[in-house]
Amino acid sequence: MAGQHVDQDITILGKVTTAFGIKGWVKVYSYTDPMTNILQYPVWLLKVNGQWKEYKLRDSRPQGKGLAAALEGINDRDQALALSQVEIGIPTSDLPELEEDEHYWFQLVGLKVMNTEGQLLGQVKELFDSGGGNQVVVVKGCEGSIDKQQRLIPFVDAIVLEVDLEGGEIQVDWDADF
């Protein structure tokens, strides 16, 4: 397993949920959209016992609402079960280059959210897809925010006015009373 990997250089794309069958296949829950995008990466990093280890993707296929994958060196059910609930990552440098106004969700987590009135609403805790292609940002109160209220803010152009990754801030057209 070549190369040392540290958490800051890794982007999590999904996780192994459990074993699939008896030949070492694993069930995979993908965070990518579409979920099959995780299969575009021929080498996965799995965090086993606190250490990132490289595994080559040998084969894969859709399975129910998820995916099943065969990894090099994982040849039986016991080895596959040992990977249950293990995160799947790739080196962040392997991610495709985005357009100027595009962002990966992981880049937004932790950013401060300010409204047009200059009020700090909180920090981005997470993002999720609410269905139909609608993304929602979960904002939690933080030190200096106007309250400790959790807010769910639609991540759409009409509301999200600016994302400043370098400044660590998102500006939104969102009333504090919403």
Rank of each mutant, 00 (worst) to 15 (best):
M1A: 13
A2R: 05
A2K: 05
Q8P: 05
Q8R: 14
I10A: 09
G14L: 06
T17V: 15
T18R: 11
F20M: 12
K23R: 13
W25E: 08
K27I: 07
Y29E: 10
Y29F: 14
Y31I: 01
D33C: 08
N37A: 10
Y41T: 08
P42A: 04
V43R: 13
K47T: 02
V48F: 00
G50V: 03
Q51P: 01
Q51T: 15
W52Q: 10
K53Q: 11
E54D: 02
Y55M: 00
L57C: 07
R58A: 13
R61V: 03
P62M: 06
Q63Y: 07
Q63K: 07
Q63G: 02
G64L: 04
G66P: 01
A69C: 13
L71D: 01
D78F: 13
L83D: 00
L83E: 00
S84C: 04
Q85G: 02
E97Y: 13
H103C: 07
L108F: 11
V109C: 12
G110A: 12
K112Y: 02
M114Q: 02
N115G: 06
N115C: 04
T116L: 13
T116H: 06
E117T: 12
Q119Y: 03
G122A: 04
V124E: 03
E126T: 15
F128Y: 12
F128M: 06
G131T: 08
N134I: 09
Q135C: 08
V139R: 01
K140F: 09
G144Y: 01
I146T: 08
I146G: 05
Q149G: 06
Q149T: 14
Q150H: 08
R151Y: 15
A158Q: 15
V160L: 13
L161T: 14
E162M: 10
V163Y: 07
Q171S: 09
W174L: 12
D175T: 04
D177C: 10
